[in-house]
Design a protein around this nucleic acid. Structure first.
Length: 140
DNA sequence: AGCCTTTGACCAGCG
DNA sequence: TCGCTGGTCAAAGGC
């Protein structure tokens, strides 16, 4: 249970809400399409104002979902992101650490960047030793 | 030609 | 002590 004892504080965001918000704020489709052409799994990720590098993907049996691993491209930044999904309509983003730099994407500063701002806000909350509601990793 | 993404393999921790 | 799961690294392929 140590894995769920707060040792790792991840942000749990329902991507459905995220995508909904992003779509409302961005009339243009700015989602990045990440296609797994090998297994046919398709993952659509919204921009969050930061540049991420995907460094791994695995299927987590306990939760029955795929999990993708991302690192912030900024060398000095240790922020990480994990995206879990069982289907394109059921995604969850988890964040670890906070960014040590401002958003590099042009999405920042735009009037319609509320989604990115919310994203940053979560990151700040996370970094302020205020762990968000922890997702319970209970296998079915 | 260079950069980014994807995938398989390896390592560490826990039960 | 062994097996399993999760996380990360490095190489290859595609754009």
């Amino acid at each position: 249970m140590e894995k769920c004892s707060g040792k790792e504080h991840f942000l749990d965001l329902q991507l459905l809400d995220w995508m909904k918000l992003a779509r409302e704020t961005h009339e243009e489709d700015r989602e990045e399409q990440d296609t797994d052409h090998r297994r046919g799994q398709r993952l659509v990720l919204p921009e969050d104002g930061h540049e991420w590098k995907k460094y791994g993907q695995k299927f987590i049996k306990k939760i029955g979902k795929f999990r993708s691993y991302f690192k912030c491209r900024k060398q000095e930044c240790v922020a990480k992101k994990r995206v879990e999904w069982s289907s394109p309509d059921n995604l969850r983003i988890l964040y670890e650490g906070s960014h040590s730099h401002a958003s590099s994407s042009s999405i920042q500063g735009t009037p319609s960047s509320s989604a990115a701002n919310q994203y940053s806000l979560y990151a700040q909350v996370f970094g302020s030793d205020q762990p968000p509601s922890r997702p319970h990793h209970q296998h079915p």
